[in-house]
Amino acid sequence: MKFCKTYQQYMQGHGHNKLPSVGFKNLKKIIKSCRRASTQPTCPDHCPVCDGTFFPSLLNEMSDIVGCFNQRAQQLLELHLASGFRKYFLMLKGKLHKNHTALIEEGKDLVIYALINSIAIRKILKKYDKIHYSKQGQLFKSKVQTMHKEILQSPWLCELIALHINLRETKSKPREASALFDGCYLTFTDGKPSLTCELFDSVKIDIDLTCSICLDTVFDSVSLTCGHIFCYTCACSTASVTIVDGLKAANPKEKCPLCREGRVYEDAVHLEELNILLGRSCREYWEQRLQMERVERVKQVKEHWETQCRAFMGI
């Protein structure tokens, strides 16, 4: 079966959620109309149909998809991570009525939604390049990545996969969860962890959980807006800020150590679910690292307050 049909069936099946999707048919029509409009075999550099219709409409759809996914993922994670007064507040609001299985179901749906849409976007851009004998589709894709509209860049995808594994492993009655999606797992290759997620037996997403700064498993992980994951202390050191000040205080000129993209620190996301997962999966390492981090953080806090006191005293 063609992917287009598979995609449409999936989206129709989840129509009750009113989720935004890629308008496959509409975009194909635009490509065909462009083909008819231009007499040349290849699309010119400034094609009114492509520049004015195809790419803007695809960009809008991608923005809607990413926005919707991020919002729903955040809500779901908030429900799971809520505790203390926040938990009771949500209970009063009536948001915390969902049980364990319902959370797993919704998490699974969102992960599939993210993956299936990323495939759909890839397919439509491949088709565009194939028809126009161009690389405009690839250029558009890289442009979208710099705009952070690529769904696979979203830190919430990583969090959802971690949430899924956490919920699955903490289930007291595994029989109830047997029919649920089980395509996400934490793998260790040569002691290096990575999150793996599979779809249709043919699509596989791998998220490396090794910090490329300390070359160790990420601890107190944080995802920059470009999608790269680092340890919180490593990210702070790279951004030339103290742990006390945090990444919000980072200079906008500071770049990501991997992709050299600027303005990636101020909106960095703390990956709480991932921390829980790694804390449970690598207990010894986590405890050891926790002790080391405590010492480092106490030292930095002392230094920070000493400088604050000196400044206050006018020394």
Binding site: I112, L180, L199, F200
Partner: peptide
């Protein structure tokens, strides 16, 4: 960091989206 590998495999999915879930399971 994130690699999406896509092999050219036929995607067999039933008319209902539950088929997607089943194949993934």
């Amino acid at each position: 960091d994130r690699v999406v590998e896509e092999q050219e495999l036929p995607v067999n999915v039933n008319s209902n989206p539950a088929g997607v879930e089943a194949s993934m399971d």
